[in-house]
Amino acid sequence: MKTYATIALGLALGTALAGCGQQGEAPKAEETAAMTDDAGTMAMPAETIHGKSTGTVTAIDIAKGQVTLDHGAIAELEWPPMTMGFAAKPELLKDIKVGDKVAFELDWDGKAGTITKLDKAL
């Protein structure tokens, strides 16, 4: 009985290893076109979008020109509330500290956001 189990295991292992040496096929032209069509439906802005919201400062790195905000929804970008980092000129950050409630405006290029206006909220 052990001999049959050993042979079966050896055959299964050999088949599995043989399959590992095979190369996959390149996608067919129609599959590639379908992938491209799907990517074309993603929301990728063709130009910079300007948005504004309010939030709370959770981190600041003046040397890197970076601020992290726990912000409310940004209607212009169709974003829900979230926490994320943005680039900002050091002069916009000089009077801001962690914990401050702020009103801000930003430009989004489809990859990164840059704060263009940042004021303490009243």
Rank of each mutant, 00 (worst) to 15 (best):
G19R: 10
G19L: 15
C20N: 05
G21S: 07
Q22P: 00
Q22V: 13
Q22T: 10
Q22N: 07
Q22H: 09
Q23K: 15
G24M: 13
E25N: 08
E25A: 12
P27M: 12
P27F: 06
P27Q: 04
P27Y: 03
K28T: 10
A29T: 09
A29G: 02
A29W: 04
E30K: 15
E31M: 11
E31G: 00
T32W: 09
A33T: 09
A33W: 05
A33M: 14
T36Q: 13
T36P: 00
D37L: 14
D38R: 11
A39T: 01
A39F: 15
A39W: 15
G40Q: 07
G40Y: 14
G40H: 13
T41V: 13
T41E: 11
M42L: 12
M42T: 08
M42Q: 02
A43E: 12
A43D: 14
P45W: 05
A46V: 10
E47I: 07
I49A: 10
I49W: 07
I49H: 06
I49P: 04
G51H: 11
T54K: 13
G55F: 01
T56K: 14
T56M: 13
V57R: 01
T58I: 06
I60C: 04
I60S: 02
D61G: 11
I62K: 14
I62Q: 08
A63K: 15
A63Q: 13
K64N: 13
G65Q: 10
V67F: 09
V67R: 08
T68S: 02
T68E: 02
T68I: 00
L69F: 05
D70G: 05
D70F: 04
D70A: 15
H71K: 03
G72W: 00
I74T: 04
I74G: 01
I74C: 06
I74V: 15
I74R: 07
I74H: 08
A75G: 04
E76M: 06
E76A: 15
E76V: 11
L77A: 08
E78F: 12
E78I: 09
P80S: 11
P80I: 06
P81R: 04
P81Q: 06
M82A: 08
M82F: 06
M84A: 12
G85R: 11
F86L: 11
F86T: 01
F86S: 03
F86N: 06
A87P: 00
A87S: 11
A87Q: 07
A88F: 08
A88S: 09
K89R: 09
K89F: 08
K89D: 15
P90V: 03
P90D: 15
E91S: 12
E91N: 13
E91P: 00
L92V: 06
L92D: 09
L93I: 11
L93G: 03
L93H: 10
K94C: 00
K94A: 12
K94Q: 14
K94N: 01
I96Q: 03
I96S: 04
K97C: 08
K97D: 14
V98P: 05
G99T: 06
G99Q: 06
V102H: 05
V102F: 04
V102R: 04
V102P: 02
A103D: 13
A103V: 08
F104L: 03
F104I: 03
F104V: 02
F104Y: 02
F104T: 01
E105P: 05
E105D: 12
L106N: 03
L106G: 07
L106C: 05
D107Q: 07
D107T: 07
D107G: 03
